[in-house]
Design a protein around this nucleic acid. Structure first.
Lengths: 181, 181
DNA sequence: TTATCGGTAGACAAAACGGTCTACTTTGTT
DNA sequence: AACAAAGTAGACCGTTTTGTCTACCGATAA
């Protein structure tokens, strides 16, 4: 993997996440990254291929960050606490690895690609499955019911944080799960 | 209000919801609606003004639909059941008033406008507050805790339905709320 | 009749879009 | 030293973007 390619993907992820994929043009991306257009099309067939690479990069970063948060937990209660405390940190820009919060990159990008069969939409779906599997791995009792509950609360908390600018949901989600266990 | 104006807003809502705001150009919209460009700019200052009008139209439709679903409920349990059964119908394209499901128009549109201070983002936030208030109105015990729980589950169910194409969440949300009451 | 108003059709503008291509320079390897 | 690969700058292409403007049409009302 070329160094230039990595710069391109990094810049793409940063700009795409900050402004939305369809609001960032190739030329702007090249200007910011300081890389020539030919080099971009030497590494990627199209803008969409670059979008896909940015999604993968984000998935790697997110999974690493989540793993780091969860692997210190021993009980299920702790897994839940660490998960939602992590989200809370993310929302308030206290998770440096994830950058300034602007919602979930995968939800946002999925919204911009109306074709559910496109590579982009499919990858967003894949990411959500990956996250679910990682949470499952850390639970001592990974019943589908508990997993569903955690995941639906997680998605709700992210959406409310982004659309309503209300960052208090993670704490409330912990309370809800507390009552259920 | 002019008849042409109404056609414009209807067409805009349909196309914007189906494909995403930034993926639909003014010219395409004019072609589909069969209205002249001058007429559009006679009624609206800019594309963004039209987006805002489409959001308002959607808000009206959604609130009417939700009200219709909730006003037959007498107990809190019934409110919850009708809310999530309604969502389930929406997801599976069985709610004619809301059109073919492509996620929440307000979440999707919010994703495309990165500036949280823009009229568009502000209106999306307003819509979510409206929905919360309507649910609250129908609850006999509208405690903030219960309301928060319902809303976070609702947003989670919508997101999972759209990104993961999993339409089973509403039913599971009812079970969760059942255990909590 | 005549003036006005809302509408039509579409040319036009200026910029931005994704993507291709050429000609040149840098870099790394043998 | 020589050569190939990779990168650079940016002109260029055709299309599309939002938005303006002109010239005209048809109905309604004084």
């Amino acid at each position: 993997m070329s160094r230039k390619r990595q710069i391109l993907v990094d810049t793409a992820l940063q700009l795409f996440y900050e402004k939305g994929v369809n609001s960032v043009g190739i030329n702007e991306l090249l200007k910011v990254s300081g890389i020539a257009k030919k080099t971009l099309y030497n590494h990627f067939d199209s803008k969409q291929a670059l979008v896909l690479a940015a999604l993968k990069q984000r998935n790697d970063k997110f999974m690493t960050w989540l793993e780091m948060n969860l692997n210190e937990a021993s009980t299920d209660k702790e897994v839940i606490a660490r998960l939602f405390h992590g989200l809370s940190a993310w929302f308030t820009d206290s998770a440096a690895e994830l950058g300034n919060f602007r919602g979930c990159f995968f939800i946002n990008t999925s919204s911009e690609f109306s074709d559910p069969c496109s590579d982009v939409s499919q990858y967003c779906q894949y990411h959500k499955r990956q996250v679910r599997a990682l949470i499952s791995k850390h639970l001592s009792n990974p019943s589908p019911e508990l997993l569903d509950t955690i995941c639906v609360l997680k998605e709700g908390a992210i959406t409310i944080a982004y659309v309503n600018k209300d960052f208090s949901m993670p704490q409330k989600c912990i309370s809800i799960l507390d009552k259920l266990l």
